[in-house]
Design a protein around this nucleic acid. Structure first.
Length: 517
RNA sequence: GAGGGCGUAGCUCAGUUGGCAGAGCAGCGGACUUUUAAUCCGCGGGUCCAGGGUUCGAGUCCCUGCGCCCUUACCA
C-alpha cells in the first residue's frame, strides 16, 4: 500500500456521512434516469461508435462519502465488492469498478483485507438484486487492520476474548454495539427526565478518608502528598446529604462506586449507581420517581427494540423480554409487605423470634458466628427472608417490598405509626435487587447513636476503614430537611433493559483477571 | 469457597475404541466487471492451555495447576 504512495493509516476527512445517513440519501428517480440515459447512449454508440449525436449521460445521483470497516469482500477481477460496517449500519455495500473508480482507489481495493477501515466516495445506485450500493469513484485508506479478523459468519464467540478485546467484539458483533448504544441512550434519558422534574446533577468525592454510606469493604489507595490512606467510595450518600443541608433540595449523582467484594454475574468491583435525594420528600415520593425512571428506561429500550425488529410496541404496554420472562413495566409496580411475604415463605410471623431461631436451625441457617456467639435475631430473620421469602416474588412483575423491620435499616426513619418498621422499600425485578428507597434519618442525635451502635459491632479490620463521621453529624446538626433518598443500580437496570444475563455484558470493560504474560 | 462444563490453526469448530493433527472461513499465488458467507484452481499454516503420570503409543485416560463459562455460596 505504501508502494502506491498511500498512508495505510489515513488522514482527516471532510463531509463523511454515517452509513445509515448515506443509505437514506438514495434517490430512485435519479438512479433510473442515469440508467436509462446510459443504456440509450450505449445503444447508439453500439451501432456507430463514432456517432456525434449520441445522447449524453445524465447522472444526478446523490454522491456520498463514507467510512467503514470492511466486513466482507468479493473480488471478481475488475470489480471488487465490499460490505462496510459502522456503528450506524451493519452492512453497506460498496462496488469498486476498474472502469469507474480512480486508479489509486481500484489498486487499494485489490489490496484491501477484511477488517481494514476504508473511505469510499461515489454515487448511490441499486444493484440488479436491489441492494443500495455506492458505485465508488474513489477509495482511500482509513486504517489498516493487521490482526486477523474473527470469523465473518459467526463473529467473535469466545466470551473471554469478547471481554478482553472489547474493541474487536464491538466491531465484529453488532449486537454488542447496540447494547452499549442502548445504555448510553437510557442514561441520557434518565438524566433528561430528572432535569425535567427539577433535579440537579452533582459530583461528590470518590476518594474519601472514610468509606461511609453503605456496608461494604472498600478499596484502599494512598495520597502521597499527605502520606495518608484514602478509600475509593462505596457510596456517595453522606456527601449528597450534606448538599441537602447546604440547601440544594433535589440532587442526584450518576457515577461509579467501588466495592472490594465478590465478582460474579451481578457484581463488578466498580459499578454505576444513580443515587438521589429529595428534600421534603419521603420513601414514597422517591419510589414514584424510581418507577417513572424505570419506565423511561423501558420506553427507550422498547423503542430501540421496535426500531430493530420493525414491530411497534403495543399501546399502553411496555413489555420487554428478560431471558424466559416477559416483563411489563407499564402498570404500577406491585407492593408486598415484608411481614406478609415472610409469612408466605416461612409460615409464621417474623415477629416470632423463638420460632425464627428454631426454623433457622432446622433449615440449616447459621445462628452463631465464628466466635460461637449468637447472631442477632434480626440478621437471622433477614437470612430466612432472603432465602425462603424473596423467591416467592413473581420475577416477571416489578415489585416493591415495603415495611422492613426497623432493626434491619439503621439509617432509615422508622414509620410514624409503627416504630418497629422502617420507612423503606426495595425494588425487585426478575429476582434482582435493583435498589433501596428510604425516608432518611435527619436527627443528628439518633444518627450519632446509630453510628456508635454500628461501630460497636465491627471487628478490628473493619474499624480501619469505618470510623465515626463526626463532620456528617455536625452537618446534620445544622439541620437537614426531611428527605426521601434512593439508589438504583444502573448496571442491573441495563441487564433488564438489554436482556443480558451477566453484568459483564452491560459493562464495556468488565473487570477481568490480568492476562498471563 | 463448592460442584459441573470448556480450553485443538488467526476465527468458528470436528476429532470414533488410545494408533500419522482435521474441516470451513481467514492468509498466500492465480482466474473472473452485478457479487451477496461470491465462485473456481493451487499453496502454506499447530507448544492440541501448562506441568506431571499410565502406556509400545495420549488431543483422547489419570493427577496437579492456570484461564474462561454455568450453577451455587459468601458479600448485614
Amino acid at each position: 500500500m505504501r508502494e502506491l504512495g498511500l498512508d495505510p493509516y489515513g488522514h482527516r476527512q471532510h463531509d463523511l456521512l454515517s452509513l445509515a445517513e448515506a443509505a437514506g440519501r438514495y434517490d430512485e428517480a435519479a438512479d433510473a434516469t442515469h440508467q436509462e440515459s446510459a443504456a440509450a447512449r450505449k445503444g447508439v454508440l453500439k451501432d456507430n461508435p463514432e456517432a456525434e449525436d449520441a445522447p449524453p449521460m445524465i447522472d444526478d445521483r446523490p454522491r456520498v462519502r463514507v467510512a467503514g470497516r470492511v466486513m466482507l469482500i468479493r473480488d471478481s477481477g475488475k470489480l471488487v465488492w465490499m460490505n462496510l460496517r459502522d456503528a450506524s449500519h451493519e452492512s453497506f455495500q460498496v462496488a469498486v469498478s476498474k472502469a469507474d473508480c480512480d486508479e489509486l482507489g481500484f489498486a487499494l481495493a485489490k489490496q484491501t483485507d477484511l477488517g481494514d477501515i476504508v473511505v469510499a466516495s461515489g454515487p448511490l445506485m441499486k444493484t440488479r438484486k436491489g441492494e443500495t450500493t455506492i458505485w465508488a469513484s474513489g477509495l482511500e485508506p482509513g486504517s489498516k487492520c493487521l490482526v486477523p479478523p474473527p470469523s465473518k459468519h459467526d463473529g467473535l464467540q469466545d466470551q473471554e476474548l469478547r471481554y478482553r478485546q472489547r474493541y474487536v467484539d464491538l466491531w465484529s458483533n453488532p449486537e454488542t454495539t447496540s447494547v452499549f448504544m442502548l445504555r448510553a441512550r437510557v442514561i441520557a434519558a434518565l438524566r433528561a427526565h430528572l432535569a425535567s422534574i427539577g433535579f440537579v446533577e452533582v459530583e461528590t468525592p470518590m476518594l474519601q478518608s472514610q468509606a461511609g454510606g453503605a456496608a461494604a469493604r472498600p478499596f484502599v489507595t494512598h495520597l502521597n502528598a499527605l502520606d495518608m490512606d484514602l478509600y475509593l467510595r462505596i457510596a456517595p450518600e453522606l456527601y449528597l446529604k450534606r448538599l441537602l443541608v447546604g440547601g440544594m433540595p433535589r440532587v442526584f449523582e450518576i457515577n461509579r462506586n467501588f466495592r472490594n467484594e465478590g465478582v460474579d454475574r451481578s457484581h463488578n468491583p466498580e459499578f454505576t449507581m444513580i443515587e438521589l435525594y429529595e428534600a421534603f420528600g419521603d420513601c414514597s415520593t422517591v419510589m414514584d420517581i424510581s418507577e417513572s425512571l424505570v419506565r423511561v428506561a423501558a420506553k427507550v429500550a422498547s423503542k430501540m427494540r421496535a426500531g430493530e425488529t420493525g414491530v411497534r410496541a403495543e399501546g399502553g404496554s411496555l413489555v420487554l423480554p428478560f431471558g424466559d420472562l416477559s416483563i411489563d413495566y407499564a402498570p404500577a409496580f406491585d407492593r408486598v409487605n415484608y411481614g406478609e411475604l415472610f409469612e408466605r415463605g416461612l409460615g409464621f410471623a417474623f415477629t416470632d423470634h423463638d420460632r425464627a431461631r428454631a426454623e433457622a436451625t432446622k433449615r440449616g441457617i447459621k445462628t452463631r458466628n465464628e466466635a460461637g456467639e449468637d447472631i442477632d435475631i434480626v440478621f437471622i430473620i433477614n437470612e430466612l427472608f432472603e432465602e425462603f421469602a424473596e423467591p416467592k416474588l413473581d420475577p416477571a412483575r416489578p415489585t416493591w417490598i415495603v415495611g422492613y423491620p426497623a432493626a434491619l435499616s439503621p439509617l432509615t426513619r422508622p414509620m410514624a405509626d409503627d416504630p418497629s418498621l422502617a420507612d423503606r422499600a426495595d425494588l425487585f425485578i426478575a429476582g434482582m435487587e435493583i435498589g433501596p428507597h428510604y425516608t432518611e434519618l435527619n436527627d443528628p442525635d439518633v444518627q450519632a447513636a446509630k453510628f456508635r451502635e454500628q461501630l460497636a459491632g465491627v471487628d478490628d479490620e473493619e474499624r480501619t476503614f469505618r470510623s465515626f463521621d463526626a463532620d456528617f453529624i455536625r452537618a446534620l446538626k445544622s439541620g437537614m430537611p426531611p428527605a426521601g433518598g434512593m439508589g438504583l443500580g444502573i448496571d442491573r437496570l441495563m441487564m433488564l433493559m438489554a436482556d443480558q444475563r451477566s453484568i459483564r455484558d452491560v459493562l464495556l470493560f468488565p473487570f477481568m483477571r490480568p492476562e498471563a504474560t
